[in-house]
Each structure stands twice: as structure tokens, then as C-alpha cells.
């Protein structure tokens, strides 16, 4: 992998040089909340590159909340700056769902092909972060076009794809070769942030969430405890980067069709004509969500559809914390 060093000023100048040619999105810090915003000449110097993930999942750039799915797909050249490793891991699930088998979704695919992903290491964490418990790292090693690691005075820049090489090659004057000492420092930084996230979750004693959810699926604890404070607001599903469910509906233009994000936590999600509903309680719906992320997709794809980003914990009105739920279920494992 090609590796460079870039100073912070040069990096921001590099971004400024992109905003006229691409749709560029970056993270703007609103009192600690990072939000995705379209960048322009005016705001491109005030973005946050590293820190932690945004509350907004990046799936929305490929799978918008609402879109027509009968027209010819179109996508503008887009660059996302500041994706974190949990975001990249989310794309493994959405890619597996939308691309291929039995046909690819042309809308997702077109946007994916036209988007350049610039990720960064985390150098801070949220209280809800638990990627290390899901055997993931708080820094990317694949799935990006360009990755940035913060270091003294700037960033170490890794170039992973031809697209990224081309983007850099016409703006080579911003970049220089990295000093070996900086690479060593990066490893130290990565170890440090990994330890910080682990310490953040030091009380958690569970491993193998697939087994925990499978073996406690019929426990009454789902009704009595785990799902008892759910208010069915669906927020957890809409911030989840791996949730791909959608609902199709007709439009007034009678031969076109739109899709909208849907949530398995809604009472009507699985309801069939005639009123039958296999997921007719909050507990059935919540355990379906846990099983979807931790059992079913693992069986389908070999990896979890939960990356430990903690967004669902942060937005939950009922204070449901998947980390604590798994800890409670683990205790029940023997008793089921």
C-alpha cells in the first residue's frame, strides 16, 4: 500500500481543491456531536477528520431514506471524509445485501461505485463504543480508498485503490514520504486507542454473542426485561449502519415505485394480509433484531452485522444497551 505524510494545512488545502469537482461530505463538530455535512470552500477548513464516528450512519449516502427505484440510477461523484472503521464494517453487510445474489440493487451499486471513501483512525471514543468487544479495531485496515492516521503535525496517508492513487497523483505536491518514526508512532497510537475502548467496556464479560442469543432465544427475559422499556420509536434501526430493510410503495405516477427505510421494530413490519403477525410483541421484535445482527447474518456471511459502533445505545429512549442485554442473557444461558 502506498503511504505518504501530509501536514494538516496541506490536507485541508487538498480537500478545498476537491470541493469544486466532487460532492464532498465531511464531519462538522457540533459540541461533540459529529454530523455529516456537504463541504464547500467556506466550511472545508473546519471539518473534524479523526475523533470518533458520527451518530449518522454512512449507509444514507448509498441507500437514502427515500428514493424512487424504477428510474434509471444516477450518481454524482462523491467523496466521504472521516468514515471510521465501524462505518467501513457496516458496508460489508450492506454490500452483501445489495450487491449480487440474486440480482444487484442498481441504485446502491451505482452510488457505491461513484463514491470515494476517505477513512480515519479513531483517536477518541464515545461511551457507547464497543467495537473491540465485537473483535473489530478502532482503526481501518481495509475497505477504504484512503485512510488517515493522525500523527505529529498531520496525517499518515494510506492509499488503497487506483481511484485514490489518481486523486492524489494530480495533487502530489501536498504529500511527502513518511518518516519511519511516524509509522512507529502510529502503531503506538493505535494500541492506545484500542486499549481505551477495551477499558471503556472492561465490565463486559461476554464473548460469542451468536451463541448467547441463540441459546436464550426462548427465554422469558426478552419479555420481562430486555425489551420491557422499548417504546417502539425505531431510532435504533435508523441509526444502525447495517440495517437494510425497506418498504416499497406505489406513487401517484402509477408505473413508478419508491422505497423507504423500514424498521423491524415497528408493529406492522411482519404483518401479513388478514392480520397475522409472526412478530407481534416488542420482545419478539427486539430479539429478531439481535438475532438478525448476531446470528442470522453471521450464518449468511460469516461476520456479524453489528460492528460495535454503539449508535443504537446512544439513541435509545428506553435505555436499552445491547452490551448490557448480552451480559444479562449470558447469565441466563445455563438456566434456559
Amino acid at each position: 500500500m502506498l503511504t505518504y505524510f501530509v501536514t494538516e494545512t496541506n490536507w485541508l488545502n487538498f480537500i478545498s481543491s476537491l470541493v469544486s469537482q466532487y460532492r464532498v461530505f465531511g464531519l462538522i463538530d457540533y459540541e461533540g456531536e459529529l454530523k455529516w455535512r456537504r463541504l464547500n470552500e467556506a466550511n472545508s477548513h473546519s471539518i473534524t477528520i479523526t475523533k470518533y464516528r458520527s451518530i449518522q450512519p454512512i449507509k444514507k449516502f448509498f441507500f437514502p431514506v427515500k428514493e424512487e427505484v424504477t428510474a434509471e440510477p444516477s450518481a454524482q461523484k462523491t467523496i466521504l471524509i472521516g468514515c471510521k472503521n465501524c462505518d467501513l464494517n457496516h458496508l460489508k453487510t450492506t454490500d452483501s445485501m445489495f450487491v449480487g445474489s440474486p440480482v444487484s440493487d442498481p441504485y446502491y451499486l451505482k452510488r457505491r461505485e461513484n463514491t470515494i471513501i476517505i477513512s480515519s483512525d479513531c483517536d477518541d471514543f464515545r461511551k457507547t463504543c464497543f467495537c473491540t468487544s465485537m473483535d473489530e479495531d478502532p482503526f481501518p485496515s481495509k475497505g477504504f480508498d484512503i485512510n488517515l492516521s493522525p500523527t505529529r503535525g498531520g496525517f499518515i496517508v494510506e492509499i488503497a485503490t487506483k481511484t485514490a492513487e489518481q486523486l492524489i497523483s494530480v495533487r502530489k505536491h501536498y504529500f511527502q514520504d513518511p518518516q519511519p518514526i511516524l509509522l512507529q508512532e502510529r502503531e503506538k497510537m493505535r494500541k492506545r486507542i484500542t486499549e481505551l475502548v477495551k477499558n471503556n467496556n472492561s465490565e463486559l464479560n461476554w464473548t460469542d454473542p451468536q451463541r448467547i442469543v441463540s441459546s436464550t432465544y426462548n427465554s422469558k427475559a426478552w419479555d420481562d426485561d430486555i425489551a420491557s422499556t422499548c417504546v417502539e420509536c425505531d431510532a435504533c434501526r435508523f441509526v444502525c449502519g447495517t440495517c437494510y430493510c425497506f418498504i416499497l410503495s406505489e406513487t401517484k405516477d402509477i408505473w413508478s415505485r419508491i422505497r423507504t427505510w423500514d424498521s423491524c421494530q415497528s408493529a406492522g413490519y411482519a404483518r401479513v394480509a388478514g392480520g397475522g403477525n409472526p412478530k407481534n410483541t416488542r420482545a419478539k421484535r427486539l430479539k429478531n433484531f439481535y438475532a438478525c445482527k448476531l446470528v442470522y447474518r453471521k450464518e449468511n456471511f460469516g461476520f456479524y452485522a453489528c460492528t460495535g459502533c454503539g449508535r443504537c445505545i446512544e439513541v435509545c429512549q428506553g435505555k436499552i444497551d445491547i452490551r448490557q442485554s448480552l451480559a444479562k442473557l449470558k447469565k441466563l444461558e445455563k438456566n434456559v
Binding site: P102, Y244, C245, F246, Y269, A270, V272
Partner: peptide
């Protein structure tokens, strides 16, 4: 195993039965 299949392409999620997508 009929369910509320919607997209028919194994993507929208509605017809999931365990790890299966009934529609595909």
C-alpha cells in the same frame, strides 16, 4: 412458507425466516 414478501429480491427484509429470506 408464504410471508409478506415485498421486494422479491432478498433485500427488503420483510420475509426473513431465521437466516432465510423466503423470497429467494
Amino acid at each position: 412458507m408464504e410471508a409478506n414478501m415485498s421486494c422479491g429480491l432478498g433485500k427488503c427484509g420483510h420475509c426473513q425466516l431465521g437466516h432465510h429470506f423466503i423470497c429467494k
